[in-house]
């Protein structure tokens, strides 16, 4: 085995971020091995989105390092240039809570935009791959549709395909189902389960505990910008060690 296959796909160490004097992340450490799924849970404002956005360079942490694929290290304590952010984004791809599809482009164009314009891969290859991916999520017949013609669930599946088409090493999901009507959530979660089965390396912020239980290899509970507890889903959900984790899970399971 080559060293890159042994090294984790994602390594985060000492990640910290403040907005003004509000410390949002306090020295976050985590690793995700190849083909593993990490689920982040935690109350609103705990910093889940900020962690994820940092992994795609959409937020600039004040300190800490992010390692992707073993060979690429980004140290946020120094000055981070556009080249390094581009390299980070070349390795990780994000699925947004509100989809953020390009409304003026068709489904197919949404998916091929990055591979064609940024990665400059040949059109025939890119389109064939995009159509195969759309077909996998049941949307091949929507290739010519515009986002406004799709349901939320369909838009989010396009969002997932757009991320996959970039051929990243790491997939990031920020509450991908939380803007969806309940009956549309299942389709998106099914696609994500299949991706996990296919061996994609994923970091997922979600409140879907059933999904987390079935798919996660590890769950992190974040509160106040600190990792309060981490463990296998079975352990963390059924026998949490920390009081704060217990309270959070209780509130999630029995909101009333």
């Amino acid at each position: 085995m080559s060293p890159t296959e042994v090294a984790p796909v994602l390594g985060v160490s000492g990640l910290s971020k403040s907005f003004g004097d509000h410390e949002v992340l306090r020295s976050i450490d985590l690793t995700v091995d190849r083909g593993k799924v990490l689920v982040l849970i935690g109350p609103s404002g705990s910093g889940k989105t900020t962690v994820l956005r940092s992994l795609n360079g959409l937020e600039q942490p004040d300190g800490g390092t992010v390692t992707v694929g073993g060979d690429f290290v980004l140290d946020f304590s120094g000055k981070v240039g556009a080249k390094q952010l581009a390299a980070l984004r070349d390795r990780s791809a994000m699925v947004f809570q509100h989809y953020n599809l390009f409304p003026h482009k068709t489904v197919l164009e949404n998916v091929t935009e990055g591979p064609l314009v940024v990665q400059r891969r040949p059109r025939a290859e890119v389109e064939a791959e995009a159509l195969a991916l759309l077909d996998r999520v049941g949307l091949a017949d929507k290739r010519g549709a515009y986002p406004f013609e799709l349901s939320g669930g369909q838009q989010q599946r396009v969002g997932i395909v757009r991320a996959l088409a970039l051929r990243p090493q790491l997939l990031l999901f920020d509450e991908p189902t939380s803007s969806l009507d309940p009956e549309l959530v299942g389709d998106v979660l099914t696609v994500m389960k299949e991706l996990a089965d296919d061996g994609w390396t994923m970091v997922v912020v979600t409140h879907e505990l059933t999904f987390a239980r079935q798919v996660a290899d590890e769950v992190l509970f974040l509160d106040g910008g600190v990792i309060v507890e981490r463990g296998a889903p079975q352990q963390l959900f059924t026998a949490p060690r920390e009081e704060r984790t217990k309270q959070f899970l209780n509130r999630l399971l029995f909101p009333f």
């Binding site: 984004r89 791809a93 509100h98 599809l101 314009v117 940024v118 990665q119 757009r162």
Partner: peptide, 27 residues
């Protein structure tokens, strides 16, 4: 144009000027 459109452009690997030209200005 919502900030999320810039971010989606960055996410697929675009620079600021490419996002502006291909994503933001058409909208």
């Amino acid at each position: 144009v919502p900030q999320g459109q810039w971010e989606a452009g960055y996410m697929v690997g675009m620079s600021r000027s490419v996002s502006l030209r291909r994503i933001i200005l058409p909208q």
